[in-house]
């Protein structure tokens, strides 16, 4: 059982749920369908994590982030990752500036990373050096420039996207960097009915409007409340068994893991799993984490943390299949 050690937040669980529902509802005014996508992005936001969106172009990934920023009334910046993008283009640089008295001094010019919500579009097109500059900010929520550490404002939320089809000329994120993402969300193609709705909303004269239903302080407050959700020890043990089952060398490792997995999920993966479960419990109107919450969070939490071996790639086995196999194999009691 985990119980909060800090002072209890003033926000009530009911208020948490109400605000989250309002955020989702407002985003839904712009984004047609994609409820799971919206839910997972909101969960990532409320968990204080960062999300990696994977999907073909044109699925409203950018629109989603921009809409979300509008809804929660936060600063937003978009970075288009290209091979010639430099770290300084992201985090900023130190310039020599001259004041009114003619004195020259170094001045830090913040980059686009200094925002509450950052869209890192096609992150795999930048070089690893540039990617790592962003990843430091994602993990530490600080930026180090010329021996000076610049703290980023809260909430800080990076939403990176990558195109799974065009792999030529890209720099796939290494496993260590993928682990920094709280969720990896698959953006699926909308259904025909949703496409009709999209066409109706976006091709007319009237554009959908959103309103601010929250702000950055509220989001931080919600993040703090989410961490206080209790979780029973046997549920916690189940989460640990899930993580263990993704490792091919474990005692209770299912056969699918032994056959197709090279590396399993990290402890950071378990932290993400439990935190996501807590938020999902609150969103479901409960005050404790259930097995179902962990199961619902398992795919976006673990799919990018399970590294498949050559055999899996040769047989076309996806990480999702492995995670589903693990969920089937690990019993709740």
């Amino acid at each position: 059982m985990t119980t909060p050690d800090t002072a209890p937040p003033s926000l009530s669980p009911d208020e948490f749920r109400r605000r989250a529902q309002m955020i989702e509802a407002e985003v839904a005014n712009v984004i047609v369908g994609q409820r799971d996508l919206v839910r997972q992005v909101v969960v990532t936001l409320l968990a204080g994590g960062n999300a990696l969106l994977e999907g073909v172009p044109g699925l409203a990934k950018t629109t989603l982030v921009r809409t979300l920023a509008d809804v929660i009334d936060c600063s937003f910046s978009r970075i288009q990752f290209t091979p010639d993008l430099m770290p300084a283009d992201i985090i900023g640089t130190t310039l020599i500036s001259e004041d009114e008295q003619g004195r020259k001094a170094f001045r830090f010019e913040p980059g686009p990373i200094f925002a509450n919500m950052v869209l890192a579009d096609e992150i795999n097109r930048a070089t690893p050096k540039t990617q790592s500059a962003l990843l430091e900010a994602m993990q530490e929520q600080t930026v180090s420039v010329a021996k000076t550490i610049h703290k980023l404002d809260r909430p800080f939320f990076v939403l990176a996207t990558q195109n799974p089809l065009e792999m030529e000329g890209t720099y796939p994120l290494p496993e260590a960097q993928l682990d920094r993402f709280f969720f990896k969300v698959h953006v699926t193609f909308p259904s025909a009915a949703e496409l009709v709705e999209i066409a109706q909303r976006t091709t007319g004269s009237r554009r959908p409007q959103t309103r601010h239903v929250a702000n950055g302080a509220m989001i931080v407050e919600m993040q703090e409340l989410a961490r206080t959700v209790p979780i029973a020890s046997h549920v916690l043990a189940y989460a640990a068994r899930l993580i263990t089952a993704t490792h091919p060398g474990g005692k209770e490792t299912p056969s699918i893991t032994r056959q197709y997995v090279r590396y399993g999920a990290s402890p950071r993966g378990m932290q993400a799993l439990i935190l996501a479960g807590k938020i999902m419990a609150l969103l479901d109107g409960r005050f404790n984490v259930a097995f179902a919450d962990l199961k619902a969070a398992a795919l976006p939490t673990l799919r990018h943390r399970v590294v498949l071996n050559f055999e899996a790639q040769a047989e076309g086995i996806s990480p999702d299949e492995v995670v589903k196999g693990v969920l089937e194999a690990v019993k709740e009691e």
Partner: peptide
């Protein structure tokens, strides 16, 4: 019941008194 009862039993045994518990 989504682990409601077992969590409540455990919270009581741990004497957790925060609002969410």
């Amino acid at each position: 019941l989504r682990e409601r009862l077992s969590t409540a039993i455990e919270l009581h045994q741990q004497q957790a008194h925060d609002p969410l518990s």
